[in-house]
Amino acid sequence: MDSLVVLVLCLSCLLLLSLWRQSSGRGKLPPGPTPLPVIGNILQIGIKDISKSLTNLSKVYGPVFTLYFGLKPIVVLHGYEAVKEALIDLGEEFSGRGIFPLAERANRGFGIVFSNGKKWKEIRRFSLMTLRNFGMGKRSIEDRVQEEARCLVEELRKTKASPCDPTFILGCAPCNVICSIIFHKRFDYKDQQFLNLMEKLNENIKILSSPWIQICNNFSPIIDYFPGTHNKLLKNVAFMKSYILEKVKEHQESMDMNNPQDFIDCFLMKMEKEKHNQPSEFTIESLENTAVDLFGAGTETTSTTLRYALLLLLKHPEVTAKVQEEIERVIGRNRSPCMQDRSHMPYTDAVVHEVQRYIDLLPTSLPHAVTCDIKFRNYLIPKGTTILISLTSVLHDNKEFPNPEMFDPHHFLDEGGNFKKSKYFMPFSAGKRICVGEALAGMELFLFLTSILQNFNLKSLVDPKNLDTTPVVNGFASVPPFYQLCFIPV
């Protein structure tokens, strides 16, 4: 009986604490739906499609509103004006990374994606500088992407125009580009180590996009005490870190300090320079996690976009025909596509942009946080508050993009057929937390897609009208449904 009384008292205290925290903070924060004790607004949000729920709530509470995930307040920004004001106009104040408990377990605050403060700034600055020195957006990395595009075309030829699921092959190409940047090595598509790495990356994007992960991140005790797919994700990350550590040891034994070959060499050189400046942010643990982040951000996002792009091109054969006509006119058949071609191919450029806009790969991006107490639109948001960005509300804005739910390359073309930029184009987020590999991803999408369409016609196994382009999961990332196609050599 005594234990029951204690339990009831504990629960009562928890409920009172929950109510007090919510009521004391709500006077400062933007308005929002009334949260339930302990669980907050979790029942009012469709976990399978958070973005749709945010759109519905914005119609009631406006472009800036507050939700509670458990006891934790989260300020939501919906629509271009609110997102721009926060991420661009007040970029420094909104540059923090929001709480992501599962990532905390995986990387302990290291790396480039989930770190904060001085650690994040130094690692991000170093990573950007190193990638630029190796030619991100310049010639040397373009050579690597072109080489991988040629290998991709050869792998597709091996399908002999038979029906195939493109998931694996389209994942190999961007993964190999990242391998060449980090390890100075590309792998054969049949290499077992490479296959294991690909498998872990593919599993992780599916797990991260599941409703279960949303629950884990908002009720963090689940991570330590409950079984579930989150444990598989943590094991996959541990596998990748151990693999990278092996490569780091190989580099330490063979590195030429006067001739760095890749990202690992550059990081080890930085560690050597910083060894007298303790404590340094440049450690082996930081290198492991930064490399894992580059793999995660640079492989599955690009391969998922490529997979979605081919599905949309199957669905819209008239678009595919126009792209192939432009390829034939500008590039021809006797040389590989290059980035200089893009400025002469406005329709193809528009298609690449429209694919990214339409699929809305990361509907709410990753959570941000404010780095200080900030007054925002007459609300006071306390330091450390998590900020949720609705990228969907920007990419699918119906004023900027008429009929935003329709796939239409003319969203990025003017009346004369010239490519038209849009400030609403934010597939990689915006501001200080914009994806480090934005330029690389854009290069890969253009070169891989043009190389495929230069060499193959795409054949659907069903009537294009019957192809479903609805994402199968739409949590962290929008993942396309399973499909097969035939690559018919031109």
Rank of each mutant, 00 (worst) to 15 (best):
S3T: 15
S3A: 11
L4S: 05
V5K: 01
V6G: 07
L7I: 09
L9P: 05
L9H: 00
L19D: 00
R21T: 09
S23Y: 15
S23P: 15
G27D: 10
K28S: 13
K28V: 14
L29R: 08
L29V: 04
P33W: 00
T34W: 13
P37M: 03
I39A: 09
N41R: 02
L43T: 11
L43R: 06
G46R: 08
I47P: 11
K48L: 10
T55P: 08
S58M: 04
Y61K: 02
Y61N: 03
Y61C: 02
G62I: 01
G62C: 00
P63Q: 07
Y68H: 09
G70S: 03
L71I: 09
L71D: 15
L71A: 13
K72V: 05
I74A: 02
V76H: 02
V76G: 01
L87P: 02
L87A: 05
L90R: 15
L90Q: 14
G91S: 13
E92L: 06
E93R: 04
E93Y: 13
E93A: 12
G98T: 11
G98D: 10
I99P: 09
R105A: 09
N107H: 15
R108I: 11
R108S: 08
G111Y: 03
G117K: 06
G117L: 04
W120L: 03
E122P: 09
I123N: 06
R125F: 12
L128A: 14
M129Q: 15
L131W: 05
R132D: 12
G135R: 09
D143V: 10
D143P: 05
V145W: 01
V145G: 00
V145Y: 00
V145I: 10
A149V: 02
R150T: 09
R150L: 10
L152I: 06
E154V: 06
R157M: 06
A161S: 14
T167K: 10
C172V: 06
C172L: 11
C175L: 12
C175D: 00
C175E: 01
N176S: 02
I182S: 02
F183M: 15
R186W: 00
F187A: 03
F187V: 03
D191P: 01
D191Y: 01
Q192I: 12
Q193V: 14
L197Q: 02
N204Q: 05
I207K: 05
S209G: 11
P211W: 07
I215Q: 02
P221F: 09
I223F: 11
P227V: 11
K232C: 11
K232E: 06
A238V: 12
S242E: 14
Y243P: 01
Y243F: 15
L245Q: 13
Q252E: 13
S254P: 05
N258M: 10
P260S: 09
Q261F: 04
F263R: 03
F263A: 02
M269L: 12
K270F: 06
K273S: 14
K275T: 13
H276D: 10
Q278R: 15
S280G: 12
S280D: 13
T283A: 05
I284D: 10
N289D: 13
V292E: 04
G298P: 03
T301Q: 08
T302W: 01
T304W: 07
T304Q: 12
R307K: 11
L311D: 00
L312P: 00
L313Y: 01
H316V: 03
A321C: 08
V323D: 01
R329Y: 12
R329E: 12
G332W: 02
S336V: 12
S336E: 07
R342S: 05
T348S: 05
A350T: 00
V352S: 04
H353R: 04
E354T: 03
E354D: 02
Y358H: 08
Y358G: 01
H368A: 05
H368G: 08
T371I: 10
T371S: 11
T371G: 10
T371Y: 04
C372Y: 12
C372Q: 15
D373L: 02
D373C: 03
D373P: 02
F376W: 14
N378Q: 13
L380F: 07
L380V: 12
T385L: 04
T386S: 08
I389M: 12
L391P: 11
L391R: 14
T392R: 12
V394P: 11
H396C: 06
H396M: 15
N398C: 15
N398E: 13
K399G: 15
M406V: 13
F412Q: 01
D414I: 02
D414K: 06
G416Y: 15
G417S: 09
G417Q: 08
K421D: 15
K423G: 07
M426S: 06
P427V: 07
S429T: 05
K432R: 15
E438T: 08
E438P: 03
L445V: 10
L447G: 02
T450C: 12
Q454T: 02
N455F: 03
L458Q: 00
S460M: 04
V462Y: 08
P464I: 04
L467A: 02
L467H: 04
V473E: 10
G475V: 06
S478T: 13
S478W: 05
S478Y: 10
V479M: 15
P480Q: 02
P480A: 10
P481E: 02
P481C: 01
F482C: 13
L485A: 10
